[in-house]
Amino acid sequence: MKTEWLKKAVLGLMAGSLLLVGGAGSVHAQDEIVIGGNLELTGNASAYGAPAAQALEMLVEEVNAAGGILGGKQLKAEIIDNQSDLTESASIATRLADSEAVGIIGPTATGVTKAAIPVTNRAGVANIFAASTGDGLTLDESGSVLEYIFRVCFEDSYQGLAAGTYASKELGFKKAYIITDQALEYSMALADAFTETFTRNGGEIVGTQAYQSGDTDFSAILSGLLGQDLDLIYIPGYYTETGLIIKQARELGITAPIMGGDGYHSETLMELAGKENATDIYFTTHFSLEDEDPKVQTFIQNFEAKFGNKPDTFSALGYDAGSLLVDAIERAGSTDRDAIQKALAETKDFAGITGTFSIDEQHNPTKPTLMLKLEQGEVADIQEASAE
């Protein structure tokens, strides 16, 4: 569901389908360093791509205001709308790979991302994904790492691993019931990963149930939980269904804690569940407005001052993707694509908005998730959660 601010953001970002952000002059000027953006400004994934594009725009302005990079060169972002379309994504990846861009940010949606990967990796230009969380995106079919493919978000299954560990070790839960969306690969991946670490740490899965994307009546599933001996209900799904499940569970008198993944991270979850029902709700995510880290709060203030609304998870991840590329250019001391790729692969302890991370051997970030706890629909606690 698009909010009004997102609609305004898309209109503001689009000048045709191309947005140039940075200093004056041609994108080929020798005193400018160009980074590409293959992002979803329109289409069904614009809720991910448009906020990331905003964050990239803000980052470029900040870098240039601070004196630029590599001894004063101005930074320019060439952001092109892939319209949330696979064919368009591949075409834009080719266009940017053939341009002066020293690296590329995006796409943000996993499906659209898959269309760009073969193009950019073959061309030998570093491609950083902000929010494409699908498992295995940085690997080829044989399991070998794709040399020029990186991301700053954790994989889907990692959230499940972290949740299972947190539920067992930090919360001390012993018995969990799992409800999955059988039509959603995301849901199944999180559930399998949760089961792995929860049972490894001595927990027991006491039952499972499944629903289908688009369902609205969960009474049959939830009635089966009444009287069950359980400590936790793990429901890894999207807010469209999980908001209704939370509401119906609480109205049936089911008070057990409910846990899920970043699919919960939407104000719409609260609208569907009702704030009075959203108590003892836990979910893993990448970013929180309530994070007290001064760096995070400065980012939030700057973003709100520029765009008139608070940033979301995709804004924060987009900012981190762009910042990581800028950092790699500085560490490489060059705009040579191979040198930048090497610097990215060697990243250690990068201090991002979504956490401090290194890039591992599979080109994924090594960082904990955030575990948010809701009470009466408000964030009551934030803790780090890892798979260890």
Rank of each mutant, 00 (worst) to 15 (best):
S46Q: 14
M188N: 13
N64H: 04
Q248F: 12
T298D: 14
G355M: 09
L70F: 08
Q228P: 12
E304Y: 01
V379F: 10
K174Q: 15
Y166T: 04
E375M: 13
G214E: 10
A50P: 02
V10I: 15
A321K: 03
I281E: 06
G103K: 03
A162M: 02
A162T: 02
A9Q: 06
A90N: 07
A343Q: 03
Q212P: 01
C153F: 05
D31G: 04
G25P: 14
G164M: 00
A90G: 12
S91V: 12
Q341W: 01
I80W: 06
T87D: 09
D293W: 06
E384H: 13
D229V: 04
I178M: 11
A328K: 04
A351Q: 13
E147R: 14
I300S: 01
G36M: 06
A380P: 09
Y211P: 15
A305L: 04
V112A: 06
L70Y: 07
E32M: 13
G308W: 10
Q301I: 00
V34E: 11
E330G: 01
Q212R: 08
D293A: 12
A343N: 05
T284L: 11
G243H: 03
Y166H: 09
M14T: 15
T313I: 10
I69Q: 06
S213Y: 05
G16W: 08
L139A: 00
Q54P: 05
L272K: 10
A249Y: 07
K306D: 06
N82R: 03
I300H: 02
D81A: 05
V34Q: 12
V102G: 08
Y166A: 07
D181H: 02
D381G: 05
S144Q: 14
N277W: 02
T133K: 03
E170N: 13
P368S: 00
T195N: 11
T354K: 05
P365C: 07
S132E: 00
